[in-house]
């Protein structure tokens, strides 16, 4: 093997240019313009791959749904919706049905895990911090960066997630939604009686999200005698089938 002592001089010359290039991209709008232009050109390709991935996932999981199953599911959903409506009225929840929603398509996954790129941006009125939900009003995450025509969405499954949530219909069940490999509602008063299947919703007090948005169902109650608080593991709807289209809450 011919290992010479060539000092990689060309790279050493390149380094100052690299630093200058990075500063130029970060301190001026050129970086965002480059991102926006690249995504404008490549988003049809990435979206096509994303759609192909969803259909592959469906075939792997065997989640083929025929027409009758679809109708059955819709009927069940309608019934559950009516039950939820009654429940919400009974509990006098502050769930705001008058959100102004902006529909959006998923372009693909961002370089970081638990972040998505969506097809709406500053030109559509999207701002950083706006909540994002699914078609069934299930919480997905928040917008963390906007480009002119695209935005980056941080999912609630992201490790840096932290906002207030509560259990639907349970007094003194306020907690903090956090994420590790799963999504948890932690710091709940241990005197509160919790069960699997309880519904976790957002709490408006934190200011990050509007109140009453569905986060998920309680999959497991975690109580340790040594702990002051209890927590629950949440089953959420964060999978590609439910994330085909997203909706940005642009006014709450």
């Amino acid at each position: 093997m011919n290992i010479t002592s060539k000092p990689l001089s060309r790279i050493k010359i390149l380094l100052p240019f690299l630093v200058f290039f990075l500063l130029l991209l970060n301190l001026t709008p050129i970086g965002e313009m480059a991102q926006n232009s690249f995504l404008s050109v490549s988003s049809p390709l990435i979206s096509a791959f994303w759609s192909r991935g969803i259909s592959t996932h469906q075939s792997i999981e065997g989640e083929y749904v025929d027409r009758l199953q679809l109708i059955s599911t819709m009927v069940n959903m309608q019934r559950e919706l009516e039950e939820m409506e009654d429940l919400r009225t009974a509990l006098n929840l502050e769930m705001d049905n008058e959100f102004e929603l902006l529909d959006s398509r998923i372009v693909g996954k961002a370089a970081e895990n638990d972040q998505l790129i969506i097809s709406r941006g500053e030109n559509d009125g999207v701002l950083t911090g706006m909540p994002v939900v699914t078609a069934s009003r299930s919480l997905v995450g928040e917008v963390v960066k906007t480009l002119p025509d695209f935005s980056f969405v941080k999912l609630i499954s992201h490790p840096e997630t932290g906002f207030e949530g509560k259990i639907l219909g349970k007094e003194d069940s306020l907690g903090v939604v956090e994420s590790d490999e799963n999504i948890f509602l932690t710091m709940i008063n241990r005197e509160t009686k919790l069960e699997e299947g309880d519904i976790v919703i957002t709490y408006p007090g934190g200011g990050l999200y509007p109140g009453g948005i569905f986060i998920g169902e309680v999959a497991e109650v975690i109580r340790d005698d040594a702990e002051t608080f209890q927590s629950v593991r949440i089953d959420s709807e964060l999978n590609p089938q439910n994330l085909a289209f997203l909706f940005i809450i642009i006014d709450f």
């Binding site: 990435i46 192909r52 991935g53 996954k109 895990n113």
Partner: peptide, 17 residues
């Protein structure tokens, strides 16, 4: 890049890419 941001995360949504 297309595989990493499009195909794989949609095909294996519960696994890190």
């Amino acid at each position: 890049l297309l595989l990493q941001s499009g195909l794989l995360p949609a095909t294996f949504p519960y696994s890190p890419v």
